[in-house]
Amino acid sequence: PDAADLRALARHLYEAYLKYFPLTKVKARAILSGKTGDNVPFVIHDMKSLMEGEQFINCKQIPIQEQQRQSMAPSDALELRFFHSCQSRSAEAVREVTEFAKSIPGFIDLDLNDQVTLLKYGVIEVLIIMMAPLMNKDGTLISYGQIFMTREFLKSLRKPFSQMMEPKFEFSVKFNTLELDDSDMALFLAVIILSGDRPGLLNVKPIEQLQETVLHSLELQLKLNHPDSLQLFAKLLQKMTDLRQIVTDHVHLIQLLKKTEVDMCLHPLLQEIMKDLY
């Protein structure tokens, strides 16, 4: 494809990204840097503020059986409830990523089984990359930017909840130094989704061809958008390796939670994705 085609592809994916992802990096950074006027996020930094902040977390709750809830310590129930809210938001985010994937030219023409495989293996990687713009070294925006939850608070939760977010913070702080903007992110997410080495793919060639075109578009985009940032394309591709390790560790933690938490009930969509994943 010539440069004009690659630019058109970049524009198309950026438009799809804006259409399907409600909290962009531009918006998130404005909130994090206090440039949104009176519209400041509610800060959750301890159990009391978590309780107060629950009303902001506008997600469908997965009910915990009343009896079990009564037999639990109040803070344990609160942690589980919060974890369930996170799951609901993650399931919604999977839907957004699916819509974005479908907007990648050629994606819906792939074998339907391969579309499922690409999403199954790609979606958690995409969600972790999309967390980065919401994070800084001190905490993360959640609930569409209405809440800022501190990193210290997340670290203070009981194990293994306390271990869930710290690797994402470490990754995100480093990833954010690359200073990608939303239009770069759109292309990078498409590259991740179109990974031809996912286990069980039936027809790898068309996936690799699609990915190659998006990779060319990303390379050109980075040259134009970040002319002074040397080796940015190579650095970004390197992140894909780190990302796989983070997803593997994340899935193992969720599997551990499933074993250790009697009240743990995994969202059916997330269950589907994580079953036999790694």
């Binding site: 919604e92 999977v94 839907r95 339907l112 089984n113 499922v116 969202h267 969509l269 589907e272």
Partner: peptide, 21 residues
């Protein structure tokens, strides 16, 4: 694979994604 991933499959098939998550 489609059988084991019914919700993902539904999300892929429905253009407006009215799947009840």
């Amino acid at each position: 694979l489609k059988e084991k991933h019914k919700i993902l499959h539904q999300l892929l098939q429905n253009s407006t994604s009215p799947v009840d998550l």
